[in-house]
């Protein structure tokens, strides 16, 4: 009898927790991860059969509208975390990131508010410098 009572207590308590956990999961704020639809820009070489060295960096269009200054990105660009930083800190709109290659580089440089973030695949630094020089 004592065993049955204790088991009933355990079951009731645990099932309450199970329900609370599930309810919390339902109540989780859905995160807008739409910007992540293009997070795999790093896969462009794989998708297009390009050499990874041809991917120079990533553009974050309309950066000025997001309200995060470029200097902030410089602090985290080692890991190319810019997109998630925007999402975490600004509850973002979000940004699309595009892989920059030789073919589309000029178009990005000519557009206003385009920033190229250094990344690990290759010549990011040089192109970043060029992009910065072109900014007003």
């Amino acid at each position: 009898m004592a065993l049955a009572v204790i088991l009933a207590v355990i079951t009731a308590g645990a099932m309450t927790n199970v329900f609370i956990n599930a309810a919390n999961a339902y109540g989780l704020e859905p995160t807008d991860q739409g910007w992540l639809q293009q997070w795999d820009a790093r896969l462009e070489p794989v998708r297009q059969g390009l050499s990874p060295d041809r991917i120079y960096g990533f553009a974050i269009p309309n950066l000025d509208q997001i309200g995060v200054d470029y200097a902030y990105f410089r602090g985290v660009d080692e890991y190319l975390l810019a997109p998630i930083v925007i999402s975490d800190r600004c509850q973002g709109p979000l940004v699309l990131i595009d892989a920059i290659t030789e073919d589309n580089l000029q178009a990005y440089l000519d557009a206003n508010g385009q920033i190229i973030i250094e990344q690990r695949f290759g010549n990011g630094l040089a192109l970043q410098r060029r992009a910065t020089e072109r900014e007003p």
């Binding site: 099932m15 199970v18 599930a22 999961a25 995160t31 991860q33």
Partner: peptide, 17 residues
Amino acid sequence: AAMVVSFAGLLAAVMHH
């Protein structure tokens, strides 16, 4: 019952993220 409730919550959680 515990499995059904938990996996319903799990599906909700993965859909939200």
